[in-house]
Structures are given as structure tokens and as C-alpha cells.
Amino acid sequence: MLKRFWMICTLLPLAFFAGCSGSPEADFVQVNSAAVEELRTKLASSGSGTETDQQEEAGPSGYATLKGRFALDGSPPPQIKLDISKDPAICAPGGKDVFANDVAVGPNGGLANIVIFANGVNEDWVHDSAKPGRTDEVIFDQKECVFLTHVVGIQTGQPMTVLNSDPVAHNLKVSTTFNQTIPEGKSVPFVASKELNSPEKMSCSIHPWMTAYLLVRNDGYFAVTAEDGSFEIPNLPAGVELEFRVWHERLNGIKGDLQVNGSAETWKKGRFEMTLEPSQDQELNVVLPAAMFN
């Protein structure tokens, strides 16, 4: 033991110097000190920040529904096989293969589990049917170590009951904000208090391959595409420009060249802008090239 101690100690100066001089230049950024000073003065000044002209913006001229479908053009990417490293009798009964199903392709290439929501909608413009404060309960269940809803959207404060229909314990870990055990056959309540701009990962630490996603929004202007790729967001403010965000598990924000209502478009950073006509359903049919998923 002692021999090892001294050996390590003689070797360590080397490691020490490596550790100290090893930091690449890119670890530090030179900033302009005049710019820093200028900004500091601005931030330290009393009173609130820049006045916004939001007040002057004209309100919506009515309400409208956005609906349509997301579909894949080409053959679906190969599925990822999961490593069922625990409780195989329950999580992979009969030794069956279990797949990630992160790209869920339904009938006619329909893409399920895509999230679409209107971002930053002025609170005063939100239709009564989409106001914050929904109280109907969402059930989030798991069976055979699979979350039965792969992507779930809720409003802040809306109660969600987390069920465990398996004969083993699970725990639900929601990104960095929640982590609780759910005993076999039991349920626990969950309420989200913070709005998210992109779905957060949910997992089970006991069975780490289990994955689902949670979107939390203050208003009700969001949808998750169904098995056939369809979605509908009713009662959106019309006559004002809205920003929509679109997300898919494998792609994060959906970005790149795609087809919208039959014509070629390019989305950047998973978002696009749109102004709806009052009292008129707006179709949004999006086709994603299969290459996007490789």
C-alpha cells in the first residue's frame, strides 16, 4: 500500500502539469472591456428595461382552428432495439424484442408523437377554451415497462395521475424537476408548475431504457399528433401573427427542407410563423423526407 502511495505521488507531478496546462484556448473567451462597462451601466440603471410596444399591437380579429397531419415520405428508419437489463420477465415477457419506437410511423406514413404549439401567445388573446387552469385529470400509465403515452401535453397546474400497472416498482423522473417512486400497482399525483418551451424527458431510473416526454404549457394551444399523424388546435387567435414550434423526439425542433400543403418549405430551429383567417379552418399538412431521421 505504502509503495503504491509513493509511486503515485512521484508520478503525479506529471498529471498535475497536464491538468493545469491542458486547458485549450477555447476554454476562455476574450470580451471587450468597453462593451462590458457599457452594458453594466445599462443593467445597473434604475427603472425597468426597454419599453415594449406590445400594448399597441392590435388584438385578434377572431378565432380559428389549425389542423392537419404530419407524414413521412420514404421508408421508416430502422427501429432501435432496447437493452432490457432488468426484470426481463415483466419488461420483455417471453423474451420478446422491445424497441424504442422513437419514430412512430402509422397508417399512410402518419408520424405520431410530434408536438406542435403556439409560442408566446399574448395572454389577453387566449380564447376561454384554452385559458390556463385546466383541472381535468390526465392519466399517465406504464405497463410492461413501457410508458403507455409516449408524449404527453398538459397545462401548468393540471393534475396528472401517474399509474403503475406493472407488478414491479417504477419511479418517474421528470428531467431535473421531479423523481418519485411508484410502487407496483399504485399511483402518485403529479402537478407541473413551470411552462416549458420544449418537451422534457421522463424516465424511470430503475429501468433506464424507459422513455417518454412531457410538454407543459400555460395555455392550451398545443397538440401531440395521433397514431395517424393528425392533430388539431382549436380557437387560436386569428388575424395576428403566431409563432409555432414543432418538435420530434429524434429531431428536437423539426428543421430543414420539407413540404407544407404540397409546396417546398424550409423550417429553421423547429419553428414557423403563420397568421390565421378568422372563423376558418386552416389546413397544415407537413411531409418530412425520410432522410431527416437518419
Partner: peptide, 14 residues
Amino acid sequence: NGIDGTPMPAASSQ
């Protein structure tokens, strides 16, 4: 409460 930052979950609220 569980151990934040790690897989260790809080005991069930039940």
C-alpha cells in the same frame, strides 16, 4: 426527498 441530481427517487407520496 430522494437525492437530487442522481437516480435515487423520493419515496412514494403514498
